[in-house]
Write a protein that binds this DNA or RNA. Structure first.
Length: 195
DNA sequence: TAGGCCATCTGGTCCT
DNA sequence: AGGACCAGATGGCCTA
């Protein structure tokens, strides 16, 4: 991990405190695996309090209760969304782990990780294809069906320059024509990989 | 200080 | 109804 702000305190926490609904600042997900997500137990008590609300007759029940219910659902949704993003980040971290970087401990940003992974996969595929091509050439001398051509390869949508570096693939697989914006989006991360 | 990156909140939409 | 997913907004932290 590079030095970045790890977990800025949730900004709306004080607001939640004001509402009496706040749970303690959610601890960072220590890892991708542990599912000990903070149960959003700060809610559900609206029912219990409405239980007590039986004492006071109907009047303020409707609007206020609806407000509280809405707030409760919002907070739950916030928790789920937070966890979802944590899992997404964990997956991104796992992806970073298998990508070679220079220097070793450099941390790619999210977009860099995705772009580099794309290029890296392309490079590996191309390597396999070339190696397979040599094998296929050898196999062709022995028989007709020996190649690896069937394997789908993002290389088919990349610039065909044979001598291009792995990071020179600038076209999105989804858009073989590669608009300018595509080229920009899939350009290699700058200055992070080698000299 | 501006710009980049990030985490979080939020409301909308779609799916089960 | 409730959850997942998404995109926009917001604010904090860091670096050039």
């Amino acid at each position: 991990m590079l030095v970045k702000a790890e977990s800025p305190a949730p900004p709306a926490e004080d607001e939640l405190l004001l509402l009496g609904l706040a749970s303690p600042a959610p601890s960072l997900p220590s890892s991708a695996g542990d599912e000990e997500e903070e149960e959003d137990d700060d809610e559900e008590e609206e029912e219990g309090e409405e239980e007590a609300g039986k004492r006071r007759p109907g009047r303020c029940r409707t609007a206020e209760a609806a407000q509280r219910l809405k707030r409760s659902r919002r907070l739950k949704a916030n928790n789920r969304e937070r966890n979802r993003m944590h899992h997404l980040n964990a997956a991104l971290d796992a992806l970073r782990d298998v990508l070679p970087t220079f220097p070793e401990d450099a941390k790619l940003t999210k977009i860099e990780t995705l772009r580099f992974a794309h290029n890296y996969i392309w490079a590996l595929t191309e390597t396999l294809r070339l190696a397979g091509g040599a094998a296929a050439a050898a196999a062709a001398r022995a028989g007709p069906d020996g190649g690896l051509e069937a394997s789908p390869s993002p290389a088919s949508s990349c610039s065909p320059a044979p001598s291009a570096s792995p990071y020179a693939c600038t076209l999105s697989p989804a858009s073989p024509d590669g608009s300018a914006s595509d080229a920009e989006h899939w350009a290699p991360p700058r200055g992070r990989f080698g000299p």
